[in-house]
């Protein structure tokens, strides 16, 4: 965390001039962002600040109005139409975890993790299952392999969702408020898996309200408002001594909660 913010290492993810319009409303306004390999970036901001939209633009769940996204050195111009091939290539390198888990409830936990590996990466069932079991072990849920998601707690479902995304060997993991739908103690077990992942060197972008997680785990904290990055830097510095008035207001609002 004491490393300089502008590391000489080539960024693994680079966003240039990304904007997203919904009709008249500009949800993301000309955002540029470089993320180094292994860096953990936390994004906070009031609701409607565009942080989730930015995240969803990175793997093109929302198609940005303009901008360029480079993952692992391969740029994708996102102005206008992105070809199906580019779309799949980009999504292969970017894993995503949703607020509402979005597991497939009719498949077992193991199938949830193995099926995408078989269909997207062409792994054999045995290969995929071996990888799935190793990941379930890692997130502490090996005993749940043959359960269906509705039989798991929210925290367990979210850990399965993390394993499902990791199974495709992404270069970058995106987390969209991964603990917002969870009771605090269940959120903790998810955060601990994320912390472990960060320690192992996974590049992560986390949209969150968990200020403690942001300050303990993130290498960089980004504050967004009105679709723009209004402040960024070392998490502890930003939290203890915000330079921008809106950051101060927002931080005191979530502290009071």
């Amino acid at each position: 965390m004491t490393e300089p913010l502008t590391s000489p290492a080539r960024p693994i993810l680079s966003i240039e001039g990304l904007s997203k319009q919904f009709g008249d409303h500009t949800a993301v306004d000309d955002v540029s962002l470089d993320v180094r390999p292994g860096e953990v970036v936390a994004i906070i901001g009031p609701s409607g600040s565009g942080k989730s939209t930015l995240l969803r633009c990175i793997n093109l769940l929302e198609s940005p109005t303009t901008g360029r996204i480079t993952v692992g050195g391969i740029p994708t111009e996102v102005d206008g139409k992105v070809s199906q091939r580019e779309l799949v290539a980009l999504r292969r390198k970017v894993g995503m975890v949703f607020q509402s888990f979005n597991l497939f409830p009719h498949l077992t936990v193991l199938r949830n993790i193995s099926l995408p590996q078989e269909r997207v990466l062409g792994r054999s069932r045995a290969e995929a299952d071996a990888r799935s079991m190793a990941l379930l072990e890692q997130v502490g849920l090996a005993s749940k392999a043959s359960s269906h998601p509705p039989r798991c707690s929210g925290g367990q479902q979210q850990r399965v969702a993390i394993a499902r995304a990791l199974a495709l060997d992404p270069s970058v993991m995106l987390f969209d408020e991964p603990t917002s739908a969870l009771d605090p103690e269940l959120g903790l077990e998810v955060l601990s898996v994320m912390r472990q992942l960060a320690d192992e060197g996974m590049t992560m972008i986390v949209v969150t309200h968990e200020i403690h997680f942001a300050s303990d785990v993130a290498d960089r904290l980004i504050v967004m408002a009105d679709g723009r990055i209004i402040e960024q830097g070392d998490p502890k510095t930003v939290i203890d001594d915000p330079q921008v008035e809106r950051t101060r207001t927002f931080l005191s609002a979530i502290r009071d909660r």
Binding site: L61, V88, R91, M96, F98, N102, L107, P116, R119, A165
Partner: peptide, 21 residues
């Protein structure tokens, strides 16, 4: 739920696979 389709998209499953599975 639409969220499951989004997850399928984010995982890189093709539209046909998302429908089928």
């Amino acid at each position: 739920p639409a969220g499951e389709l989004e997850a399928a998209d984010a995982l890189g499953l093709s539209h046909v696979d998302a429908m089928r599975f």
